[in-house]
Nucleic acid binder design. Structure first.
Lengths: 146, 146
DNA sequence: CTCGGTGCAAATGCTTTGCAATGTC
DNA sequence: GACATTGCAAAGCATTTGCACCGAG
């Protein structure tokens, strides 16, 4: 996944939603997101930007994450905690999560059959899906053995 | 679903977790939960209790909802909003949600095959499931036609 | 030059907490 | 009696907002 391609998607999104402007902050935040692995929250992303010498405010981070969400470049989740968690969505397959309630660890999985069931349900209910999130809460192998 | 049966489950839960006491507030809150249909949030449950003449504080409502969650008598969800939503879990089948991002409406659905896929995934990953929540976000038929 | 965007700090709103009084066991 | 639970109000905390300045188009 090249940063340029993601930049183009954001530019296109901004262009198509007239009056949205291309600012250096927005692209700096996008770059920081692209460097992440796994999940992150707004606060830690903010601190990473600051420590990398990028001058942004928390307000702009929250704002821009919302923008990236609409542009389809990040996904947003709420697991058990009060903090919202994000992850880059660009170039990653649709996937779901096993959340360990003991250690907080998150295991990802992909299932074609799950995707198919979702399509069927949406068809039956005449619902147009945009995104989805299956979270299975429980205990991971390591914690169970403790 | 009889209130008594739910009371018994709560009593059993309290008994099995030593030092937890049976208080009138806890049972009053459980009764209020049993009277709900669909989803509710802590605040609205609190106001309903108050207007029914039950003397409780918000703190106790939040506290007790946590207890009922652990006892398996309610489920807790976080959809798109910042407020947590609950629903009674007693005597209801496991089900999932289509969340309309336009009107906030929530459509429930049940799928045996989905349950089976979850079991399979948990087996593969050596994960012990406790609860799960599939949310499909999108647009409902009514909003799409507007 | 026009407005949308930014940074700050203050505001918001859900949820939790501290503490004295209360009631269960 | 001991100590878990309650009620109240205050504290917490993630997120949003108001507003003056800044800068993209």
């Amino acid at each position: 996944m090249r940063a340029e391609a993601a930049h183009d998607i954001l530019k296109k999104y901004l262009r198509e939603n007239r009056n949205l402007r291309s600012t250096p902050e927005r692209f700096a935040i996008l770059d920081a997101v692209l460097q992440t692995q796994g999940h992150f929250d707004a606060e830690s992303l903010y601190y990473r930007l600051i420590s990398d010498g990028v001058k942004v405010s928390k307000a702009t981070v929250y704002n821009t994450l919302g923008l990236l969400l609409n542009a389809g470049l990040v996904s947003k989740y709420r697991f058990a905690e009060k903090t919202s968690r994000y992850e880059k969505a660009f170039g990653r397959p649709q996937h779901h999560h096993l959340v360990c309630l003991a250690c907080g660890d998150i295991i990802e999985f992909v299932s074609d059959r799950l995707e198919r069931i979702q399509e069927e349900v949406c068809g039956e209910k005449d619902f147009t899906p945009q995104s989805s999130s299956l979270q299975i809460f429980g205990t991971c192998a390591r914690c169970r053995k403790k």
